[in-house]
């Protein structure tokens, strides 16, 4: 398997001269053992290993425990901790300001599938080039343990009783909304989380990562669908997932027929090594079927569920400048000439 941190120097500096600490943020204020902390750590490791200049990234979040977490990584990247359920619109606008930045957004299941379902669906249909992580734990944490829309039917919570409603499946919603990169993972599987985020960042379009990220305080009983215990027991990776950045070559040897390679927009590659089943992640219909079947079989299917690399992203649809963000234009680029005002008045009557 290819290890992408092979490029780091002995002193622990990567090729852009930064140490892992340079990618950290403020100390976390989430509960000890929270899945979100583990994901934050993988974001830090991912950025360090990919030799990303932090100023080239931009962070977004909504409101909730999950949305606090961008405070805890990449303090040298700009970020916007926006409104509950409204992160997608803020991210869309900000990425118009500088579309050359790599967007990374963190949301929660309440932020995305309760209050934010509308904006979630529309950012997918617009194919905004950005990584959209849903730290999915089935409950509201900051407001003390109410059900979210991803809570499974029949879930019993101490202060809430039994959930009588059917859950929203984030991945199914993403498939229905034409998201172009869809993956599911589990905060307890650090390596998979990290590799998926790397691949997602190289995608030219919306990359939705539904990451089961247990809430140790309110929803971590072993029989609950978003608990560590259940996820560990029921996780079924679709494949061994390896991300190979564009500047590196695939070094590992694979048996023919064992792997599927997906070439991303920037030339990076995703190598998917077959596990127990044949799976083609570019077949949207097959993806829906697989998600439905494994859900019925009580499995937590993880890995790259769907990818479509050729569809135009929002960046391509709008004729944005080739080399810089719109926000670098100055008055001389933005105000029409003085001579043009006569033409405008003539256009009236």
């Amino acid at each position: 398997m290819t290890e992408t941190n092979g490029t780091t120097t002995a002193k622990g500096l990567n090729t852009v001269g930064l140490a892992k600490n340079d990618y950290r943020g403020a100390a976390t204020t989430l509960c000890a053992g929270c899945g979100h902390n583990s994901i934050a750590n993988q974001v830090i490791a991912m950025a360090y290993e990919l030799n990303i200049v932090p100023e080239d990234m931009i962070k977004f979040s909504g409101i909730g425990c999950s949305s606090k977490s961008p405070t805890y990584f990449l303090s040298r990247s700009f970020g916007f901790n926006s409104l509950h359920g409204r992160m997608p619109s803020v991210a869309t606008g900000a990425l118009f300001a500088d579309h050359t930045l790599k967007g990374l957004a963190v949301s929660g299941d309440g932020d995305t599938t309760n209050i934010g379902m509308g904006q979630f669906k529309h950012i997918m249909r617009r194919n905004v080039p950005m990584v959209y992580i849903i730290e999915n734990n089935g409950v509201y944490g900051l407001t003390k343990g109410q059900f979210s829309a991803t809570a499974e039917h029949g879930l019993k919570l101490k202060s809430q009783g039994v959930n009588e409603f059917m859950p929203v499946d984030v991945v199914m919603e993403a498939l229905a909304s034409h998201a172009t990169f869809i993956a599911r993972s589990f905060a307890g599987d650090a390596h998979q989380v990290k590799e998926l985020i790397k691949a997602a960042l190289s995608h030219n379009g919306i990359a939705v990562l539904d990451i089961i990220s247990p809430c140790v305080t309110f929803n971590n009983e072993d029989d609950a669908r978003h608990s560590y215990g259940w996820a560990k027991e029921h996780q079924e990776p679709l494949h061994d997932f390896t991300f190979v950045p564009m500047e590196e070559e695939i070094t590992a040897e694979y048996q023919p027929g064992d792997t599927t390679t997906v070439t991303m927009h920037d030339g990076s590659k995703i190598v998917l090594k077959k596990t127990s089943r044949d799976y083609d992640p570019t077949d949207r219909y097959a993806a829906m079927r697989m998600v439905q079947e494994t859900s019925e079989q009580n499995m937590l299917l993880t890995g790259l569920i769907y990818v479509e690399t050729q569809r135009e992203s929002l960046r391509d649809i709008y004729k944005l400048p080739k080399t810089h963000g719109l926000n670098r234009f100055t008055a001389k680029d933005l105000r029409p000439s003085k001579a043009s005002i006569k033409k405008v008045n003539d256009m009236m009557f």
Binding site: S89, G93, A97, D98, K319, L334
Partner: peptide
């Protein structure tokens, strides 16, 4: 092939305002 602006018909007024806030924060005349 190079524009100095973008126009988006949003899904509702919440998103219209949100996008303008994101863009204004990002330094665009939004």
């Amino acid at each position: 092939e190079e524009r100095t602006y973008a126009i988006v018909q949003a899904e509702d007024e919440l998103a219209a305002a949100g996008m303008a806030v994101g863009a204004g924060w990002g330094g665009l005349r939004a």
